[in-house]
Design a protein around this nucleic acid. Structure first.
Lengths: 111, 111
DNA sequence: CGATCGTATCGTATATCGACGATAAACAGT
DNA sequence: ACTGTTTATCGTCGATATACGATACGATCG
């Protein structure tokens, strides 16, 4: 995501303030925060947290968005790991991945 | 940022799970998380937190990005309120806005 | 005043996001 | 098997993000 200029290599090998592990850490953090970087996704996460367990396409009902758009946001939340979805007959139940949530909270808290 | 379809009005006035305050809250959250939704900005924030007080364009030195790009990211961080910048002679000193950071941390922790 | 240094902004190109409608795919029930 | 329901994916379009170089701005120093 971040293009690295050639001359930046020098700095990295010389023990800079931001060493290589920090880069990975920053990307981790960015990935997780990006998952919440849209009101719709924030609302979806909040919704799932409210109902303790999981929900299916009721989410669509609660959102002022088209079904396909909600599905896209759910896909993003799944890809970042914040949300899990398991098939339950004809529908799909989504629920929060508590580990991922904990990781996010810890990352932010430890800032 | 979120386009609201006309028929969604009905749901909002009927006391939905996601009432209007939640919408504002979600946008608040999204705005703050979006500030950290890029590795470069995460690294800048980390950098500023490390050095307790403020820094100027040393940030550019630490980043593998062009000066103008870093300036853009700093602008975003300023707009979201996470970072403050004050002119110090010929250069500009940036520092973390602790209140905004606290707000972000609280929002995430209270999820 | 003019030169220089540090920073911000402009202009631009490319990539990605976010939204939608339409369509496909998976499953349950008749 | 057919049908209806639920969810995912595709294709598209406008808006925005991200990156850069070039340039403008502002302050300090000679």
């Amino acid at each position: 995501m971040v293009r690295v200029r050639p001359e930046a290599q020098k700095g990295c090998t010389a023990g800079e303030t931001l060493s290589l592990p920090d880069v990975a850490w920053a990307e981790d953090m960015a990935k997780l925060t990006w998952a919440l970087a849209h009101p719709a996704r924030v609302r979806i996460v909040r919704l799932l947290l409210n109902r303790t367990s999981c929900i299916c396409g009721e989410i669509v009902e609660e959102m002022p968005l088209a079904q396909s758009t909600v599905s896209q946001h759910l896909k993003i939340l799944k890809e970042t790991g914040l949300v899990q979805g398991e098939i339950d007959g004809p529908r799909v139940c989504y629920c929060i991945n508590k580990e991922a949530m904990a990781k996010l909270k810890k990352l932010i808290a430890d800032l």
